[in-house]
Amino acid sequence: MPHTRVAVLVGSLRADSVNRRLAESLREHAPAGVSVELVDGLDQVPFYNEDVDRPGSVPAAAARLREQVAAADRVLAVTPEYNGTMPAVLNNAIDWLSRPYGAGAIQGKPFGVVGATPTPYGGKWAHADTVRSAGIAGAVVVEDVTVSQSALEVDVLTDPEVRDRLDRAVAALVEFEAETAAA
């Protein structure tokens, strides 16, 4: 199996957030032949504005985001839910990754979303919105890669069942072949 790079977009900016810690644990538990790379600096990416998205003048943080995702084989969002939807920082990252239209860094990349929230719903609305947005942006959404977990039910960082679901989600994302989506 060739080496697979997974770019991880963390929807929470808080340094000690549960979702950042989940993302770090995914990196630590990555299967052999897989590197899980957290895309840092999302807080430095300005809100998307087509006026500043011009060849030669793209803000440096947005250019780094695009380069990291373009270099990856897969993209995984690890995100909480804010007010019933995805965090603005994640939406903004997807906006930048969707451009230029039809040729953005996320175009054709297998994409999944996992995460936890301290609510009974586990982030399912944020995850559904993230999947929809990424799909519209050109990503190939891998349906088997969604883990929405309530942090009220279990300690999401230590629960073996949650760990197993996260590991299976990463494996499904890595093993996904885009050709099978067309079949």
Rank of each mutant, 00 (worst) to 15 (best):
G33W: 14
V114P: 06
P110Y: 11
W96I: 08
A88N: 02
P87E: 01
W96M: 08
L76S: 03
T85Q: 01
D43M: 03
R74T: 06
K109F: 12
E37P: 11
D73F: 10
D53Q: 05
E28W: 08
P110F: 13
A61D: 00
I106N: 02
L22A: 01
W96V: 07
A32L: 14
A60K: 02
F47P: 00
I106E: 05
V75L: 07
N19R: 02
R66Q: 10
L38W: 06
Q107K: 15
A77H: 01
T79L: 08
K109H: 12
G56S: 08
D51A: 14
V113R: 07
E50V: 12
R20Q: 05
A70W: 02
A61T: 00
L38N: 09
H29G: 13
Q107W: 10
R99I: 11
Y101Q: 12
P59G: 03
Q44W: 01
P87Y: 01
R27C: 11
P100W: 12
N83E: 03
V78C: 05
S57L: 07
V114C: 09
S25G: 14
V34A: 13
A116R: 08
A70E: 12
L65E: 00
D73E: 11
V34Y: 13
Q44R: 14
N49C: 06
R27A: 15
G115L: 11
P80Y: 03
D53H: 05
N83C: 02
S98Q: 09
R99T: 11
I106K: 03
A60H: 00
R54V: 15
W96Y: 08
H29I: 02
G108W: 13
G104D: 11
G56L: 10
D95A: 15
D51G: 10
L76F: 04
G112Q: 08
N92Y: 04
P46R: 05
L38V: 12
V113P: 07
A71P: 10
L38S: 09
G115E: 07
N83M: 03
G33L: 14
A88H: 05
E37A: 13
L42S: 03
A71Q: 13
A60M: 00
V114S: 05
E37F: 09
S57E: 10
F111S: 05
A71K: 09
E24Y: 06
A105N: 07
D43R: 06
V58I: 15
A62W: 04
G112L: 13
N49P: 07
D95C: 15
V113T: 10
T117L: 04
